[in-house]
Nucleic acid binder design. Structure first.
Length: 824
DNA sequence: AGCACGCCGACT
DNA sequence: GTCGGCGTGCTC
């Protein structure tokens, strides 16, 4: 007997195991590893979609096994390599099978069965005594919904919870009918085509028979030429109507067929060709070195550390050309497509049609189309954000991860994977080259390069022979002592004036949106906080309202303090909106544009701003970290960093690294053309090692200092971290649960012989933001100091996965984050 | 996740 | 008594 071992499409820890089903003989040949099937599941034999992870042969006849009902796919939806990745991910990230599987499959492909309840035409009034109020209520609700409704919709209209019982009673009484409908969101977009069915020798008699049907004759003659054409096009070209075509079909001369087409997410957008250019010495060396691995199909990892403007993109482009020549495919990851439109357009401009683009604001349908294009091998290159690492290429030659230090490569939802981590494993599985690139590599990657895991390639010079900009640090404390209370230092204002008069462009950077992030009472110190989150509300001057940046809650501004009724309200914590206002006051004639989440939420707004900046319709561009990467505008000669301290002061072990990266990246926007660039960096901590290093563009010295600190305090790359997050509405309960997990954890580790637990387990502590959307948050941090990381993971798996129901009650959410990028 | 079963307080 | 809410345990 053949048995399929499947994972059912249920996102629950309790069903996260392989279930055995008998494969009926007629499905023997169709059921394979990686295919989807329908199976009966549970007491009611609810039909569920399931993924076949194994097919085994069993000698003993187990009559208790249920049978596979049907297969969904012709071909496996998950390849052998992808299956291997699924198993690996579950182990690595302690996630469920189904969570790993869903990474590989677009949402719109997942089938879910919905219960549809239909009222039958019976005189239910007689059958149901009027005392049965509940049942009658269900029926009247059903009538109001038009006689039939899906169960979930029906439940929204009825406020008691035990609806299933009543549904069952109604079904027994034959008052309603239940149907299961597959809520398949598969939306292969098709277009109707016609195909001619007439053989050559039949042609003459048929044509003569159509003497009186002029239009039909025209249609047939056109079809004879092209054999197959879309209905729409045919009708347009022939100037005929559908009815003529229909009568041809009735006579059997033609047939209609549905042909799959793709929606193009880029519409008719044309990309300027981006011509290949001759690489300089450094670039050429890098290309040659990596090409060798592409040629040998060795799964080597390269880390390209190249200063801003060193032409990393051109290296990627030329390497991809080599990959394509070998008949292989390439994946390019960029931090966030919408933030790097220039990079994307260069790829499109060089390679044209055979690229699929996966960015975060594609609709489900568009995402599905791109995925299909990849699967049908219509593209050779995928360029996309984090999730593009799962692109279903069959012959992968290379993975490029640009700006590899970016935190967006780490998923914020379970499974909390790191795309670099996945890329490493995937390149290993599929013998493809992995190329990481950054002007400011993450300490993890750089450390691994030093250790010899990655091959380091350094680019010291800018490709266009321009120099790196000079960076001038302004001590804002001194500025203040000299009587300048403005947020702009004298130097910055002067430099902005100079740049304006030279008709060059300025970028001002501040990593905080809104107008003011803190409103507080001068008299009693009260600060306005969100009622749902433990966070101060930010004043937005455009809407003249207060917004919570965590839950989106909006409040009117407070004119007087709700505590002491003082009317002295202080607006502190400067954001980009306020900068914009102040710039306009200081430079009334300058054309100023702000670019942050608030000005770019509309589709296409992003490109529009960059386009007008490119055409020099903007003198001063003000923005958040959105402007820190990928922008390449030669006329920008001044970059002003309003405050480097916002990131520096975060209570996170990566604060210094983030600051160095951000400052270096932003500074890199200046002086990319013929003119020298200048950066003015304002800070209250001019002597901090990350500030000093970034002013000298000295990555190596920063890394040296930072690595020493990381080693001393046992942080990555010298330790692995495991963060457990607990949240729930009842603060006391959240703490109690977190505490019991911590206690049990300590007990397990202690009994394994590890006595120094204070360094290994920290917490539970309230999270940095202790409340978000009315949920209280606590966390436990685990570090592998003097203990194998695998053992920590094993203990976590035992407590929070294998015995989850014992430790985590309903109402408490607990997430596991392996090597989080941030522990705040 | 969904569903059945069984316990228990709150009502006609 | 019994209705309905809620916790528990199971699904090949």
């Amino acid at each position: 007997m053949q048995i399929a071992q499947v994972i059912v499409n249920n996102n629950s820890y309790q069903t996260d195991k392989l279930f055995d089903y008998e494969i009926p003989t007629d499905l023997f040949r169709k059921v394979k590893r990686g295919i989807r099937v329908m199976v009966p599941f549970g007491n009611g034999n609810k039909r569920l979609e399931a993924y076949v992870l194994n097919v085994i042969e069993s000698n003993s006849r187990n009559s208790k096994l249920k049978k596979v009902l049907a297969v969904i796919d012709e071909e496996p939806i998950l390849s052998e390599d992808q299956l291997r990745l699924v198993f690996w991910m579950r182990n690595q990230y302690l996630c469920k099978y189904i969570e790993a599987i869903h990474c590989f499959i677009p949402k719109s492909m997942v089938n879910k069965e919905r219960k549809k309840i239909t009222l039958l035409d019976h005189s239910w009034e007689e059958v149901l005594p009027s005392s049965q109020k509940k049942l009658r209520n269900i029926i009247t609700t059903l009538q109001a919904l038009g006689g039939s409704a899906y169960l979930d919709l029906l439940m929204q209209h009825i406020d008691y919870k035990e609806i299933n019982e009543s549904i069952k009673v109604l079904l027994e009484k034959n008052i309603i009918d239940i149907k299961y409908e597959l809520n398949s969101k598969i939306n292969i977009k098709t277009e109707q085509y016609v195909r001619i069915k007439i053989e050559e020798e039949q042609w003459q008699p048929i044509i003569s028979s159509l003497k009186r049907a002029k239009k039909q004759k025209i249609l047939l003659e056109m079809l004879k030429e092209v054999k197959e054409i879309s209905v729409k096009e045919l009708l347009e070209r022939s100037n005929t109507s559908r009815s003529s075509l229909n009568s041809l079909q009735e006579k059997g001369y033609i047939e209609y067929i549905d042909v799959e087409i793709s929606r193009n997410p880029f519409g008719d957008k044309k990309f300027d060709p981006f011509y290949k250019f001759e690489p300089n010495e450094e670039q050429k060396k890098a290309i040659d070195q990596i090409s060798a691995s592409i040629k040998n199909e060795s799964s080597e990892t390269y880390l390209i550390h190249g200063v801003t403007g060193s032409g990393k993109t051109e290296i990627y482009l030329q390497l991809i050309e080599k990959v394509l020549k070998k008949g292989k495919q390439a994946i390019v990851l960029v931090p966030e497509i919408s933030l790097t439109p220039q990079t994307v357009s260069r790829f499109m401009g060089r390679f044209g049609e055979r690229i699929a683009v996966l960015h975060s604001n594609l609709s489900d349908g568009e995402r599905y189309d791109e995925w299909r294009r990849i699967l049908r091998q219509e593209v050779d290159i995928v360029i996309g954000a984090r999730s593009a690492i799962f692109a279903p290429f069959k012959n992968l030659g290379m993975i490029v991860i640009d700006e590899e230090h970016e935190h967006t490569y780490k998923s914020e939802q379970t499974p909390r994977y790191n795309a670099i981590h996945i890329a490493e494993y995937r390149s290993h599985l599929e013998n493809s080259v992995l190329v990481l690139g950054s002007a400011t590599p993450s300490l993890e990657s750089y450390h691994r390069a030093i250790e010899g895991d990655f091959t380091l390639i350094t680019l010291k010079n800018r490709a266009m022979k321009s120099n790196l900009p000079t960076v001038e640090v302004i001590n804002m404390a001194e500025e203040f002592h000299h009587g300048n209370t403005s947020i702009f230092s004298t130097e910055l204002l002067k430099a902005m004036a100079d740049t304006l008069s030279n008709h060059h462009q300025t970028i001002l950077f501040l990593n905080r949106r809104g107008h003011s992030s803190v409103l507080s009472c001068k008299a009693c110190g009260y600060t306005v906080k969100c009622q749902y989150c433990d966070i101060t509300m930010t004043f937005h001057s455009a809407e003249k309202r207060l917004k919570c940046h965590y839950c989106g809650n909006v409040k009117n501004i407070v004119k007087s303090c709700p505590e002491c009724h003082s009317e002295e309200i202080k607006y502190a914590g400067i954001g980009t909106q306020q900068i914009e206002d102040l710039v306009k006051v200081n430079f009334p004639k300058a054309k100023v544009q702000r670019m942050d989440m608030d000005t770019t939420s509309r589709k296409g707004a992003h490109e529009k701003i960059l386009e007008s900046f490119k055409h020099q319709e903007i003198d001063i561009l003000i923005g958040t970290q959105m402007i820190s990467k990928g922008l390449d505008f030669p006329n920008v000669t001044l970059v002003g960093i309003i405050s480097a301290d916002t990131t520096l002061n975060l209570p996170d072990f990566r604060a210094a690294e983030k600051t160095f990266q951000l400052v270096t990246q932003v500074a890199g926007r200046a002086g990319r053309g013929l003119e020298e660039g200048k950066v003015i960096l304002q800070t209250y901590e001019p002597n901090h090692y990350s500030i000093v290093a970034s002013t000298h563009h000295d990555y190596e010295s920063f890394v040296k200092d930072e690595l020493m600190i990381r080693k001393e305090f046992h942080y990555p790359p010298f330790a692995n971290l495991l963060l457990l997050n607990f949240s729930g509405k009842n603060e006391k309960q959240v703490y109690a649960i977190a505490n019991s997990v911590a206690t049990n954890m300590k007990y397990i580790l202690y009994s394994e012989g590890f006595k120094e637990l204070d360094a290994i387990l920290l917490g539970p502590n309230p999270s940095m933001i202790s409340k978000i959307k009315e949920s209280y948050r606590y966390q436990i941090l685990l570090k592998d100091i003097g203990i194998p990381f695998s053992l920590l993971k094993k203990a976590v798996k035992y407590l929070l996965i294998d015995n989850r129901s014992k430790y985590i009650p309903q109402g408490i959410t607990c997430t596991i984050d392996i090597n989080p990028l941030s522990i705040i």
